[in-house]
Design a protein around this nucleic acid. Structure first.
Length: 583
DNA sequence: TAACCATGTCATGTT
DNA sequence: TCAACATGACATGGT
């Protein structure tokens, strides 16, 4: 989900107005208007806080588990490694560590790795690397880390007796000391050993003998099948934090200072760490360790090859390129359609009538739909993610760039029930595959996506590059027209819904305003009444004080008091006043 | 089975 | 003039 970083301050009315104006002008703000809605965002913030609290709790639990784990470990004075105190735990490690069980056989200890290192890099070469490592701009060579499946590892088991000697030699080398210093700096700066990107090697837990127990614990709380099943998607869809939560990995970083950690697990062996994978700038070593994907039993991509029949005749087609974008053809085109495709029905060269759609119901399109049920792992992942993952990275990026918009429902958080979405998605995919099927049937050399989304110039250029017959041209234009119209319809409905919501909101505010005005009116009316009474009292008081030349009071029936704007008061005879008025 | 809903498509008008 | 967009109306399929 694309999430826009919004300033935390509350937008002013002016800002909101501007947003509204941009919205009405259909300026793409890159997010739904709900994003700018303060109350909505407030809800989001509350949700986020709630999530953070839960995460904190989770981390607390992990720390406790970790403490319990450490209580079960004891330091092996000979090897300097932490080993389980009790046999049952070791057994558990051996039997339950399914994810890495296959690697245990050929996994080398860290000593063996270092021995190999010493052999691979004789003193001369090491001196060179030492000089280079003194240069801060030159990163430590990652060649030091041999791939675990390197034949040298598996075919050259080292005699354990020679390890200590090799170790001492290595430690005395200047370049090793250089590495040691570098690592200390790295630890000081980052507070923890950091894995390099190369550290994604699924087998690199073997460089951390002490961590095997952690791995075993992880597998205790999370069955290896689960990990095997989901690690693929975790790597692509789940944030490290989340996967760490899911796998219930103790957060060692939270408990240990790096130096302690280092001494604990690698007494006098700092160089090993630095020469290993832990030299990059990224995050949590331990969590990354347990995130290491073991080879899944079946690569999701490979599942395509298991399909009952290849519905992709030639090159692999991105069948679910746009799960949310059903740029499908109208198989149920209305009879009055004026599309050129329909006009070609007559000559039989092209055209898909309603009957065609019936026939296609049993076509690979549906097969794909069934396929999604057979292999939910492939298709039940999030649509966009899954589809993107099926493309080459460059193309996937291109797709992402082309479709930056977030689906309103997802963006607003007003998500529909998942089954509805799945259903629609499945339907979309089925349709989409039929569309492509039709394009394929006419051997159209472009993807539906390109046909729809390319700018008109590029589209024309693309068309001009290929000699298409009339039927192909008609279908391509049809696909483009319908694809664009589909998007337009979606936008139209979205706008309509937003208008409705906006009008409801406006109605509410107007009701509130009306209520407020009524209250104010009533208040002012009361106030006016009081003032009138006061005025009347004052009037009579003043009038009663007035006397004529015979010291008689004026009759209120014959005279009245009137005042001008400057405050002068006149006693006006009523009759006279009437006469004056008449004049 | 009817009602409702979501979505795709078409025709037509507008930009 | 044409492409793109907007929208009302209708069809379809699912619940």
């Amino acid at each position: 989900m694309m999430e826009i970083e919004l300033p935390k301050m509350h937008p002013s009315q002016q800002d909101m107005d501007l947003i509204d104006i941009l919205w009405r002008q259909d300026v793409d703000l890159g997010a739904g208007r709900e994003v700018f809605d303060f109350s909505y965002r407030q809800k989001e913030v509350e949700l986020r806080l709630q999530r953070e609290k839960e995460e904190e709790k989770q981390q607390q639990r992990q720390r406790e588990q970790e403490k319990a784990l450490l209580a079960q470990l004891q330091l092996d004075e000979e090897t300097g490694e932490f080993v389980p105190r009790s046999a049952p735990l070791a057994h558990t490690n051996a039997t339950q560590n399914g994810a890495f069980a296959g690697q245990d056989g050929d996994a080398m200890s860290f000593d063996e790795c270092m021995q190999l290192l010493a052999e691979t890099f004789p003193l001369d070469a090491a001196a060179e690397s030492a000089s280079s490592c003194l240069d801060a701009s030159v990163p430590p060579s990652t060649d030091l880390m041999m791939p675990p499946d390197n034949p040298a590892f598996t075919h050259n088991p080292l005699p354990p007796g020679s390890l200590d000697q090799a170790w001492m030699e290595l430690l005395s080398l200047p370049e090793v000391q250089c590495l040691n210093i570098q690592m200390q700096e790295s630890l000081d700066m980052d507070g923890f050993m950091k894995p390099s990107t190369e550290a994604q090697d699924p087998n690199y837990s073997q460089y951390l003998p002490g961590m095997d127990h952690l791995s075993s614990v992880q597998t205790e709380v999370c069955p290896p099948e689960y990990i095997n099943t989901y690690n693929g998607s975790f790597n692509t869809t789940v944030s490290p934090n989340l996967s760490q939560m899911s796998l219930n990995v103790p957060d060692v970083r939270a408990e240990f200072r790096p130096e302690e950690f280092n001494e604990l697990f690698y007494p006098a062996m700092e160089v090993k760490v630095n020469s290993g994978p832990f030299t990059s700038d990224e995050g949590n070593t331990v969590s990354q360790l347990v995130e290491i994907p073991s080879d899944p039993p079946v690569n999701p991509m490979d599942l395509h090859s298991f399909s009952p029949g290849s519905f992709s005749s030639g090159k692999p087609e991105p069948l679910s390129e746009f799960p949310d974008s059903d740029s499908g053809l109208s198989l149920d085109a209305s009879p009055h359609t004026s599309s050129p495709g329909q006009s070609l029905n007559g000559d039989g060269s092209f055209g898909f009538s309603d009957s065609d759609s019936e026939e296609m119901d049993g076509s690979p399109g549906d097969m794909e739909s069934d396929y999604a049920e057979i292999f939910p792992l492939v298709y039940l992942t999030d649509g966009a993610q899954g589809s993107l993952s099926e493309k080459p990275p460059a193309e996937a990026l291109k797709m992402k760039a082309k479709n930056p918009k977030i689906e309103p429902a997802e963006a607003s958080g007003h998500s529909k029930p998942p089954f509805t979405k799945d259903k629609q998605k499945k339907r979309s995919e089925a349709r989409l595959s039929r569309d492509e099927q039709r394009a394929k049937a006419l051997q159209i050399p472009f993807t539906v996506d390109k046909i729809i989304n390319l700018p008109v110039d590029d589209f024309n250029e693309m068309m001009s590059k290929h000699q298409l017959n009339e039927a192909q041209l008609a279908l391509v234009r049809d696909i483009r027209r319908r694809g664009k119209n589909k998007v337009a319809a979606q936008n139209c409905r979205k706008r309509k819904m937003e208008n409705i919501v906006g009008l409801e909101y406006e109605l509410d505010s107007l009701k509130e305003e009306k209520e407020r005005l009524m209250k104010e009116k009533s208040k002012r009316s009361t106030s006016l009444k009081e003032m009138k009474e006061q005025l009347s009292t004052l009037y009579h008081e003043v009038f009663s004080m007035l006397r004529d030349e015979h010291d008689k009071p004026f009759s209120p029936n014959e005279y009245s008091l009137q005042h001008t704007a400057d405050g002068t008061v006149f006693l006006v005879p009523r009759l006279k006043k009437t006469l004056v008025n008449n004049n």
